[in-house]
Computed example of a mutant assay.
Amino acid sequence: MIRVHSYESMGTFDGPGLRLVVFLQGCPFRCLYCANPDTIETSGGRETDPAEILRMAVDQKPFFGRRGGVTFSGGEPTLQAAALVPLVRDLKEAGIHVCLDSNGGVWNPAVEELMGLVDLVLLDVKQANPERHHALTGRSNTQTLRTAAWLEEHGRPFWLRYVLVPGYSDAEEDIRRLGERLGGCRSIERVELLPYHTLGVHKYEAMGLDYRLRGVRENTPEQLDRAAALLREYFPTVVVN
């Protein structure tokens, strides 16, 4: 069984084309800006037969076109890698493109197998600076950077995703450190610069949780343009989502 939080049909922001996005339950990170705090605990969501997800994907396949498919997101989907591996094999057998949206912070033999199976990894790097990454997520970025290195070493295509959080990941030093660390990776097909947003704040209120970035404002267009220009010094393709 796979513990699913929710689904999004015809998603356009989590990989190429139109996609069925499956949000899985559970995450080891505690990102201060997490838009889905209800996905963090591993005990939440609904236990789902992988065959149900496969049927849903096959039913929606006519809408995917040549570029679309299924994206597993979260939460952190690699927490359920052992259960995902056979499902991903079945999806690929059905001719469906599969993306994995991951923070790269979990690693074990099942995760390695999963990373080698999917067509594309969307790797969320929160911060290249170890201390600032820990302040932002409560966890180390060591494994995330190792995951990026593994993808590069094995020629596995991935998109690098970076959320621009004012005061936490938007300094020129932050962006240049990311570029210096990962700018030479040939497996990075593109970089997605994701604006910080507060769309999930109401969830914290509903759950009785304190949203610790309440005073942080969303990015201005000028801040996003500046960050994108810096990233383009290191990466050939940078997209602001």
Rank of each mutant, 00 (worst) to 15 (best):
119 D>V: 01
237 T>F: 05
172 E>G: 01
123 L>N: 02
150 W>K: 12
224 L>W: 04
216 V>Y: 10
206 A>G: 08
125 V>I: 13
51 A>T: 00
236 P>G: 14
127 Q>C: 11
223 Q>M: 13
144 T>K: 06
192 E>C: 10
83 A>T: 10
179 G>L: 08
19 R>Y: 04
106 V>K: 03
103 N>V: 02
145 L>W: 08
18 L>R: 10
185 C>M: 09
124 D>L: 06
10 M>Q: 09
15 G>W: 06
72 F>K: 13
80 Q>H: 04
93 E>R: 15
118 V>G: 03
146 R>I: 11
236 P>E: 10
174 D>P: 15
69 G>N: 06
75 G>T: 12
199 L>N: 09
20 L>D: 14
196 Y>V: 01
156 R>F: 02
67 R>F: 02
58 V>W: 12
26 G>P: 13
217 R>H: 09
148 A>P: 12
147 T>G: 04
13 F>N: 15
231 L>R: 15
236 P>Q: 13
118 V>Q: 00
44 G>F: 09
77 P>R: 12
218 E>N: 02
104 G>W: 03
89 R>C: 11
131 E>M: 07
53 I>F: 15
81 A>D: 00
231 L>T: 15
218 E>S: 06
206 A>N: 03
52 E>F: 07
96 I>M: 07
24 L>K: 10
194 L>N: 07
28 P>A: 10
75 G>H: 09
19 R>E: 03
